[in-house]
């Protein structure tokens, strides 16, 4: 069975989705990623979806699940590189990807994760302002 590779970069996990996922692959990714968060004690998960031309409610739910599950395990999730057409479609569909942060590209996503983590360490009160998606 195919699997989406999960890369580890220090305290973060990096996933680049390069192909349109069929359901099994997506559910596997969800399970693998949570396992990895647990095993590596990662503080952040970055998912690059810039190659995805479609995000439907199923894929949206997977992304949301990953966000919520990581959160419970004390890791932040950032989804980066969403295509404009995909964003417009998701809004029209009625999905707002609650629970995950978003960033324009991998670089900005990494910055956001680092910022979140230092914020948690130093001043846990002022989180709300920087949240991209609430």
């Amino acid at each position: 069975m195919d699997r989406i590779p999960i890369l580890r970069m220090g305290k973060f996990l990096l996933v680049t989705i390069q192909i349109d996922l069929y359901d099994r692959l997506a559910t596997n990714l969800e399970a693998d990623l949570i396992q990895m968060v647990n095993k590596t004690e990662a503080k952040g998960v970055l998912i690059d979806i810039s190659a995805l031309s479609i995000v439907d409610s199923f894929m949206g739910r997977i992304l949301g699940n990953i966000g919520s599950m990581s959160k419970i395990m004390d890791a932040e999730t950032v989804v980066v590189g969403m295509q404009p057409a995909v964003a417009i479609t998701l809004i029209e569909l009625g999905l707002e990807l609650k629970g995950v942060h978003t960033a324009l590209n991998v670089e900005k996503g990494m910055d956001l994760l680092k910022e979140k983590i230092t914020m948690y360490d130093e001043e846990p009160e002022e989180l709300e302002d920087e949240d991209s998606v609430e």
């Binding site: 989804v79 980066v80 969403m82 404009p84 964003a87 417009i88 998701l90 809004i91 029209e92 707002e96 990807l97 942060h101 978003t102 960033a103 324009l104 590209n105 900005k108 996503g109 956001l112 991209s132 998606v133």
Partner: peptide
């Protein structure tokens, strides 16, 4: 509201 939500999904405010 939709426009703002779409912008946020992209990772911008």
């Amino acid at each position: 509201i939709k426009t703002v939500a779409a912008t946020r999904l992209m990772g911008a405010e």
